[in-house]
Amino acid sequence: EVTIKANLIFANGSTQTAEFKGTFEKATSEAYAYADTLKKDNGEYTVDVADKGYTLNIKFAG
């Protein structure tokens, strides 16, 4: 089991951190699915992958 950390960075400057656990593939998939649910209210997003994929910096356009 691994932990994927998602740093969520919103257009208004606020930030939030979420963690997803499971296999690497499952946790990564859940992180992207979570970002997709936030897209409606926060706009499109870009992802900067860090720490060999264990950290995702997800920035929303607003």
Rank of each mutant, 00 (worst) to 15 (best):
T3S: 12
Q16P: 02
K52V: 08
A50C: 05
G13V: 05
A35E: 00
D36C: 04
D51E: 11
T28Q: 10
F20T: 01
Y45E: 00
K59F: 09
T37R: 11
F20V: 02
A35R: 00
G53D: 04
D51Q: 05
A11W: 08
V49R: 07
A35P: 01
A27R: 00
K59M: 09
T17Y: 15
K52M: 11
N57Y: 11
F10N: 03
L56I: 15
S29W: 08
Y34A: 04
N12C: 07
T23V: 14
Y54A: 07
L8V: 11
T3Q: 11
A18T: 10
V47S: 06
S29I: 11
L8C: 04
A61Q: 12
A18L: 14
F24D: 02
D51M: 05
K40M: 12
E44Q: 10
A61L: 13
D48C: 06
D41T: 11
N12K: 08
K5P: 01
A31T: 05
F24M: 14
A27L: 01
I4Q: 00
D51P: 02
G43T: 02
A6I: 15
T23K: 04
L56S: 01
A31M: 05
T23A: 11
L8N: 02
N7A: 06
I4D: 00
A31D: 00
A27W: 01
E19K: 09
E30M: 14
D36P: 00
G53K: 03
E25M: 06
Q16N: 09
E19C: 05
T46V: 12
T15W: 14
K5Y: 14
T55P: 01
S14W: 14
V47C: 04
L56Y: 04
I58W: 01
K40L: 12
E30W: 06
L8I: 15
K39F: 05
I9A: 08
D36E: 15
A33P: 00
E25Q: 06
K39D: 02
T23P: 11
N7R: 12
A18Q: 14
A18H: 15
A61K: 15
D51F: 03
Q16K: 09
Y45F: 10
L8Q: 01
D51V: 02
N7Y: 11
K59P: 01
Y32P: 00
I9F: 12
E44Y: 08
T28A: 07
A50R: 13
I4M: 03
N57H: 10
D36M: 05
N12T: 11
F10H: 04
A61M: 12
Y34C: 04
Y54D: 03
S29F: 09
E19D: 12
Y45A: 02
D36W: 02
N12I: 08
A61P: 12
N7S: 06
K52Q: 14
N12S: 12
L56A: 01
E25D: 11
G13M: 11
V2T: 11
L38N: 03
S14F: 13
G22C: 02
E44P: 12
Y32F: 14
K39W: 05
Y45D: 00
V47T: 10
T46S: 10
G43M: 03
A18K: 12
Y54K: 09
Y54C: 04
T15E: 08
K59C: 05
K5G: 04
Y45I: 03
Y34K: 04
T17I: 14
